[in-house]
């Protein structure tokens, strides 16, 4: 599965490499990267990744980084644990959560 990610970073030493390193370490291949010019405080990066793991989980793992301000997946509706292949619940209930 391919996913498109917009990542908004703080302008900070290591921010780009930290985010890209996380993507690979968490089980995705980086297909394309475009990092925009750092403007003041922020820098935008667009990444396409491929992998079998759920992209919403990757998004939350990226958002956990201190230098990542937000992540957007414009092509995909936000859902929780959508492609978890390890287990299917019998209830079919949609998990609720609050997001930070």
């Amino acid at each position: 599965m391919r996913h498109l990610l917009h990542i908004q970073l703080r302008t900070a030493e290591g921010a780009v490499i930290r985010a890209l390193g996380l993507i690979e370490r968490r089980g995705f291949r980086i297909e394309t990267v475009h990092a925009g010019e750092a403007q003041g405080d922020g820098q935008a990066m667009t990444v396409t990744v491929s992998g079998e793991r759920p992209a919403d989980l990757l998004q939350r793992q990226l958002e956990r980084l201190h230098d990542v301000l937000w992540v957007d997946r414009p092509d995909e509706a936000v859902q929780w644990g959508g492609q978890d292949s390890t287990h299917t619940t019998t209830s079919g209930a949609r998990p609720f959560t609050s997001k930070t």
Partner: peptide
């Protein structure tokens, strides 16, 4: 089991076992 998962870290939710309900905080 149906799962209720409480954690402060949203990145732990549905990492390994998809919960039926996640309470983040």
């Amino acid at each position: 089991a149906r799962i209720i998962h409480m954690d402060i870290d949203p990145a732990e939710v549905a990492k390994l076992r998809r919960p039926d309900i996640a309470i983040v905080g």
